[in-house]
């Protein structure tokens, strides 16, 4: 089992997944920008953030963030109807795009890391929020441009310090790390 992941390899994978999902589902082309690693990624001052957890031999979080304007554009393209403000359909669109992008990344990472699970996406909409991982690892930030609007995929992952048998789902005798 790998104990290190090549950040450039993951960034390439994120670019591939994001472009595939955007072009297939939305008919939109994104311009990829240089990826980088940072302790606390900046988020748009007013925007939308969608988070998904990874579980398996490696654990962590992936996210997609963008401005409200871009979130509305994504929903317009996905549902073929106009959206001028962040409402349920816009949040559903952002959650589903995140799910597809990180689902794609998860499937490819499983080739290296073994079976993994993804959580259901959580969408946060607001102003001036920050996110932090309790892992002492940096976030990999993979930015894109859609016109003038910026979209970022962030991933923070680390080997799971606890053996799978130590983590039991509430109400279940099945170890979390062994069920996919």
């Amino acid at each position: 089992m790998e104990d290190k992941l090549d950040q450039n390899q993951i960034a390439d994978l994120v670019r591939l997944a994001t472009n595939d999902v955007f072009s297939t589902m939305l008919g939109l082309e994104l311009k990829p920008l240089e990826s980088f690693s940072v302790a606390e990624p900046e988020l748009p001052p007013a925007g939308i953030l969608s988070l998904i957890g990874f579980a398996g031999s490696w654990v962590g979080t992936g996210s997609m963030s963008c401005s409200t304007a871009l979130a509305c554009q994504l929903a317009d393209a996905l549902f073929m109807s106009p959206h001028s403000a962040v409402e349920e359909e816009v949040m559903d669109a952002v959650a589903e795009m995140t799910n597809m992008i990180l689902g794609y990344v998860k499937t490819e990472l499983e080739e290296i890391l073994g079976p993994m699970m993804l959580s259901i996406p959580t969408v946060i909409y607001g102003r001036n929020f920050i996110k932090r991982s309790l892992h002492k690892r940096e976030w990999l930030v993979v930015p894109f441009l859609s016109g003038e609007e910026r979209l970022e995929i962030h991933i923070c992952m680390a080997p799971d310090p606890a053996p799978p048998m130590e983590r039991i789902r509430p109400g279940s005798s099945k170890p979390l790390g062994l069920h996919v």
Binding site: L78, F79, M80, E88, E89, D92, A93, A95, E96, N99, I120
Partner: peptide
Amino acid sequence: DDSAAIRKILHRV
């Protein structure tokens, strides 16, 4: 599907 977005898209398709 647990995603309302996907249900809506498939409905349209």
